[in-house]
């Protein structure tokens, strides 16, 4: 192993990791929002919107991100829609992650017993107040482990961004292998950086899963 070479390459990896993190955070935040809206639309059974949301979820969950990105980056310009690399990456990530987040929120919403809703409404709360104060807090806490798993999943999926010409970790590693044949060094740094990003996130997810588990108690089992 050429340690000096690795040290010289560090700044490139740091920059690439930073890019990955930036796009991943934007994508994850937007996907959480989109997912929550989709889950609420479906649980409220809003006629046409529900169908559109279901169709979106199926499309998104049954196609690979890589193909979604090819379509966005190489296909859409032929229809006159030009998107920057970053834009493509974020849109692709939200298109993919939104459906996974929606499913996580949905199972959370379904876990809240109908009687909880009824008892809140029987106290004179409106449907909106019931949703905000009673249903959502419980639903979200049930969803947390699944949401956290989706966050990890989405970060891992960002590894394909090099196909839309983003200089992410994979891009840098592939470049170094191609240009200098420093395969071992490039791959070691690649794995190291991914672990650096992913291990803390997955430790956090495991901690959250143990922690947020109050919902479901307080009712007779």
């Amino acid at each position: 192993m050429d340690i000096e070479f690795m040290i010289n390459c560090l700044p490139m990896y740091v920059q690439a990791a930073w890019l990955t993190l930036r796009i991943a955070s934007a994508g994850i935040a937007l996907a959480l929002g989109a997912g929550l809206i989709c889950a609420l639309v479906r649980s409220a059974k809003i006629p046409v919107a529900s169908f559109i949301v279901s169709a979106y979820i199926e499309l998104s969950r049954n196609t690979p991100l890589l193909v979604q990105l090819f379509l966005l980056y190489f296909g859409l310009p032929k229809a006159g829609v030009y998107l920057s690399s970053q834009m493509c990456a974020i849109i692709g990530l939200v298109f993919l992650g939104g459906s996974y987040m929606a499913e996580a929120f949905r199972s959370g919403l379904e876990s809240v017993d109908k009687a909880q809703r009824e008892s809140a409404e029987s106290l004179g709360l409106t449907k909106f107040q019931t949703a905000i104060y009673v249903v959502l807090p419980q639903a979200i806490s049930v969803s947390v482990p699944a949401l956290a798993a989706n966050v990890i999943f989405m970060i891992k999926e960002t590894s394909v961004f090099s196909v839309v010409a983003l200089a992410d970790l994979m891009f840098v590693a592939k470049d170094l292998i191609g240009m200098y044949y420093k395969t071992n060094e490039a791959l070691t740094l690649l794995v190291g950086f991914y672990l650096l990003i992913l291990l803390p996130v997955s430790a956090l997810a495991a901690w959250l899963e143990r922690r947020v588990r109050y919902a479901g108690f307080g009712n007779p089992a």
């Binding site: 909880q116 809140a120 106290l123 009673v134 109050y214 307080g218 007779p220």
Partner: peptide, 26 residues
């Protein structure tokens, strides 16, 4: 007022907050 067989206290709130929710919001 209605009381259910399965209590249906709100599990994410303490006793006081369970009591306060409806008077405050409704």
């Amino acid at each position: 007022g209605m009381v259910f067989q399965s209590y249906e206290l709100f599990p994410h709130m303490n006793v006081l907050d369970n009591l306060l929710l409806a008077p405050r919001k409704a």
